[in-house]
């Protein structure tokens, strides 16, 4: 884990210092907080086995909360704290209902919540600005660092992302993390062992909605704009796509998925006239040739390369 953090920091420093302009910095910033978003969804989909179609709800609620508060005279940090609290609280309330069921029913319930949230954002014009959304959002200052500067904001998001990844990775290995996976595989056995399966699933749901809120708040301050599209079904499926392409339930698969999908959507427009169709083709390719996802595929590839290098040496010696 320490090695991961060191490599991560080196990459962040290289990007921050080496970017020719704000375009690449903005892109890297989005990669950073989408990493939090996808990791949090993987906690639900991969670890808890709960296929959520409504994860964008918490992302969007936090984004709207930051947007509304900062444009109504509330300080940036207070707005962020309020957004995290609101997103998590709504996660607790909706999760308490949703995790009573699993499988297709869970999917439909989360979809319903997501559609309600989207409908509110679209129709509650007085608060959300309806289709026009909310604009004119300013970033706060962190001690001496003005986050309005894109390089500062990038480093801030990258550090937040690293922190979130470390916390979620720690959770994954913990007793609670083990019971989240066990409740996915054998819920009945878990009850017989004294575990409260509903409470375990709810805890995963609440943690996931907290981290989705973190990502949503960071997104709002990056784009300086929020609209109902943030909470659309399309956005919810896009994160799901990142998790699936990266590798469901693999340790850092979602991060790989974020890099692959964001890079693809950002730059494929220059080469193909229909980027979304191309994205579909990419998904098909991954599902067919890397069924476990890109990250596990890369892992086996690396292990294979290491092994063949290891073998090559003694053989070369023996041939002499």
């Amino acid at each position: 884990m320490i090695r991961f953090a060191i490599v991560y920091m080196i990459v962040v420093a290289a990007v921050a210092l080496g970017s020719p302009n704000d375009f690449y910095l903005s892109f890297a910033t989005r990669v950073a907080y989408y990493g939090i978003y996808a990791m949090s969804l993987n906690l639900l989909v991969g670890e808890a086995g709960l296929m959520s179609l409504g994860h964008s709800t918490f992302f969007g609620i936090a984004a709207y909360c930051v947007a509304w508060l900062t444009t109504h005279g509330v300080g940036g940090w207070t707005a962020i704290a309020a957004a995290l609290a609101l997103g998590t609280a709504i996660g607790l309330a909706t999760g308490a209902v949703a995790v009573r069921v699993a499988g297709a029913s869970f999917m439909m319930i989360t979809l319903a919540f997501a559609q309600v949230a989207w409908g509110l954002a679209y129709r509650w014009v007085g608060v959300t600005g309806g289709d026009n959304g909310i604009t004119g959002i300013a970033r706060p200052t962190l001690i001496a660092f003005d986050l309005e500067k894109q390089s500062h904001y990038f480093v801030f998001c990258a550090l937040a992302s690293l922190g979130a990844i470390l916390v979620m990775d720690r959770l994954r290995a913990s007793a609670l993390g083990a019971s989240i996976r066990a409740a996915r595989d054998q819920p009945r056995r878990m009850s017989a062992l004294g575990y409260h399966v509903w409470a375990i699933r709810l805890s995963a749901f609440v943690v996931a909605s907290f981290f989705a809120s973190v990502a949503g708040a960071l997104d709002c301050l990056q784009q300086k704009f929020v609209s109902p599209a943030t909470m659309s079904l399309l956005d919810a499926t896009m994160v799901l796509l990142m998790v699936v392409i990266g590798g469901i339930s693999s340790r850092f698969g979602p991060l790989v998925g974020v890099i692959v999908v964001l890079t693809f959507t950002e730059f494929s427009g220059q080469f193909v006239s229909r980027p979304r169709a191309a994205l579909g083709a990419l998904l098909l390719f991954v599902v067919l040739f890397m069924p476990a996802g890109v990250a596990p595929w890369l892992e086996t590839l690396l292990v294979g390369i290491k092994r063949s290098l290891w073998r090559a040496r003694p053989n070369a010696g023996a041939a002499r």
Partner: peptide
Amino acid sequence: VVIAALGAQARRWDPFTPF
């Protein structure tokens, strides 16, 4: 068996210590 043993203990909720 560790998962089973934890079921009888309050530390089954521990979100931090490796299980």
